[in-house]
Design a protein around this nucleic acid. Structure first.
Length: 407
RNA sequence: GGAGGUGUGGCCGAGUGGACAAUGGCAGCAGACUGUAAAUCUGCCGGGCUUCGCCCUACCGAGGUUCGAAUCCUCGCGCCUCCA
């Protein structure tokens, strides 16, 4: 391991603390950083990911960005794929048993994962590991021994277990093993720091306990907040439909960002950009004082986010298109096209062209004035559309467009 | 092992033999107002039908009672509580 130079500890601390929720504990982190700097040896920083749902969104990137911060400072970041855990399948709150992932699926998912993750992390500087490597070796003996390290009472300190128990909701026994398995990862990797979302705090702390039990120096635990999604209330998640996917096109990232409540954008600036905190505070002050229009500040955010994943040029283009379509009432650059045959009533055509999920919904949209053809609003569901050489331009609601060619 | 409870639309939650495609709330969608923000107001919100109406499918599952069942009975399944 070649010696490395690290920035001064206080400088490191400042970057690492940005946007964090829990830091257990600060003095230990400082001590570890000092030691590492003296020896010229990087800290081992671990964060675990479950490969069962490989669609990453901006919420995940809050954590990834924190990992990236460690990388920027020269530390060794381990991207740990929880293939062991994923293959058991977590039944939490599910009606049906979640299908167990086989090895190939885990493999495929983790590749998808990595493709997305390295949009934020530096691929060359990232160590990818799999916890099946050691957890798979444990066997039932080892698992029982591991379970013997903790008590039910301590497990039940965990808030979600406790509330589920109080509300009479089921807790399956193997769920109690999850925190222990995760803690064991830290032992196996000899982690100096473990990162996670704030909801992971309990698991991360179990890691500290277990390391102490094993006579190791406990890891420092650093958590980042859960990112609030587009709706401004719930945490960002794909299933709630309030997420921006890492692989969304630039125009989606831009447009979706513009739809967040103004009050949310300060958090997003803090957690999703590297704009210095002082500048964020300044913008906020000026918006609140009425000196700056919030739309412009939000546009800057949207542009920065689009640029992070697609480059400056694409971001500028996304902004231009946004202005054209929504402020100028224009039409986006790439409207999906469809070919259909024969004559149609408007109602049937909307459903056939998948602009509406059912005829009833299509009827509703038409009657409520959501549909326009070639820029002309129509509320007649039975309007007859006949074949013609040039395609019909449909607009449904504010942002659904289609060019439909009838032949 | 014993006793009891519970299961309703994406979610929460009313309904306890007919007036139920099922009150409310949330979420969602659309329109108005805007900055595609929030808030607010209005409308829609199982599927099909040129629809002040008709048809189909639905209240965990399968049978049954009844002219008629989300509602009653039987069995099954899931979940919960208490006792051991």
């Amino acid at each position: 391991m070649p010696e490395r130079d690290f920035p001064p500890v206080e400088e490191q601390m400042e970057l690492l603390r940005r946007g964090s929720v829990d830091l257990v504990d600060e003095a230990q982190l400082r001590a570890k950083l000092e030691k590492s700097r003296k020896a010229g040896k990087p800290l081992t920083v671990k964060a675990g990911f479950d490969p069962s749902s490989p669609d990453l969104h901006l919420g995940h990137t809050v954590l990834l960005r924190k990992m990236r911060h460690f990388q920027q400072l020269g530390h060794r970041v381990v991207f740990l794929i929880g293939d062991f855990t994923a293959r058991i399948g977590d039944p939490t709150g599910k009606k049906a048993t979640r299908p167990q992932l086989n090895e190939e699926e885990v493999q495929a998912n983790s590749l998808t994962y990595q493709r997305q993750v390295f949009r934020v992390l530096d691929e060359k500087e990232t160590v990818v590991d799999y916890n099946n490597r050691w957890l798979g070796q444990l066997g039932s003996q080892g698992m029982i021994r591991l379970a013997g390290r903790y008590t039910l009472a301590r497990m039940m300190e965990r808030e979600d277990f406790r509330t589920r128990f109080q509300e009479g909701r089921p807790i399956h026994l193997h769920e109690l093993l999850y925190p222990l398995a995760q803690a064991y990862d830290s032992v196996a990797l000899q982690a100096d720091v473990e990162l996670g979302g704030h909801d992971q705090i309990f698991n991360l702390l179990v890691g500290r306990d277990l390391m102490k039990e094993e006579g190791m120096e406990p890891q420092v635990v650093l958590t980042v907040p859960l990112l609030v999604g587009l709706d401004g209330h719930e945490k960002m998640s794909k299933s709630l439909g309030n997420a921006i996917a890492v692989e969304d096109p630039a125009r989606e990232i831009y447009g979706k960002t513009m739809s967040i409540p103004d009050s949310l954008m300060w958090d997003w600036y803090l957690l999703l950009t590297d704009l210095p905190q002082a500048e964020i505070a300044e913008r906020r002050r000026r918006v609140e004082a009425g000196e700056l229009h919030p739309k412009g500040v939000k546009q800057e955010l949207a542009r920065r986010l689009a640029a992070q994943f697609h480059g400056e040029e694409a971001a500028v283009q996304a902004e231009a298109e946004f202005e054209n379509v929504f402020a100028g009432g224009g039409v986006p650059d790439d409207v999906p096209e469809r070919d259909l045959e024969g004559s149609w009533t408007l109602l049937k055509l909307l459903t056939a062209a998948e602009l509406a999920p059912s005829n009833g919904e299509a009827r509703r949209l038409i009657q409520q004035g959501a549909v326009s053809i070639d820029g002309q609003r129509t509320d007649n569901p039975f309007l007859e559309l006949t074949p013609r050489p040039e395609p019909y331009l449909f607009k449904v609601g504010k942002r659904r467009f289609a060019r439909i060619h009838l032949s």
